[in-house]
């Protein structure tokens, strides 16, 4: 049913992604799909990496780690953004198209007050992406 599953990851907060990562791995194993982990970075040095190329290397390393942990095929895809705090939704939307993913599995927090002001990243993707979107609550 699904051939390529995209999983957006925030490398700075990997701990909170456990459920989404496990869910994506299960689905990938079940459907024989490949997982592509997508990370968004600014060109400036940040908490994760000092440069975009270092970020890409870290993301690839993460994908390899997931592959050996869950026994599924994984790749990684970095998106560079001038202003990730604002552009992340559009960056992820573009990544869906660029990677050709047919399912997006992503972590999503429980809806709260702030969701009335700022739309969450998950709902945005569900509304705009051509692929199916599965939001995994904490």
């Amino acid at each position: 049913m699904f051939k390529k599953i995209m999983v957006p990851v925030d490398l700075a907060h990997v701990g909170s992604l456990d459920r989404a990562l496990a869910c994506a791995a299960d689905l990938a194993a079940q459907h024989g799909a490949e997982i592509v982990y997508v990370g968004v970075t600014a060109p400036t040095p940040g908490a994760i990496a000092h440069s975009p190329s270092e970020f890409a290397a870290k993301l690839a390393e993460f994908a390899a780690g997931q592959a050996s942990q869950h026994g599924v095929t994984t790749t990684s895809h970095m998106v560079q953004s001038h202003d990730p705090a604002v552009d992340i939704d559009k960056s992820l939307l573009k990544a869906v198209a660029d990677t050709g993913a047919d399912l997006v599995v992503m972590h999503s927090h429980k809806p709260g007050l702030s969701d009335y002001i700022f739309e969450g990243h998950g709902p945005y993707l569900a509304q705009h992406a051509k692929a199916s979107v599965l939001l995994v609550r904490d």
């Binding site: 700075a12 440069s51 975009p52 270092e54 870290k58």
Partner: peptide, 29 residues
């Protein structure tokens, strides 16, 4: 976890550059 990979080596920016080796992590404070 991938968090722990942060300190393992610092690949260069795109092409040659004289990166400064420091243990400081951006955002650690």
């Amino acid at each position: 976890m991938a968090d722990e990979t942060v300190n393992q080596g610092i690949p260069e920016p795109e092409g040659a550059a004289g990166i400064i080796e420091t243990d400081y992590e951006i955002g650690q404070d």
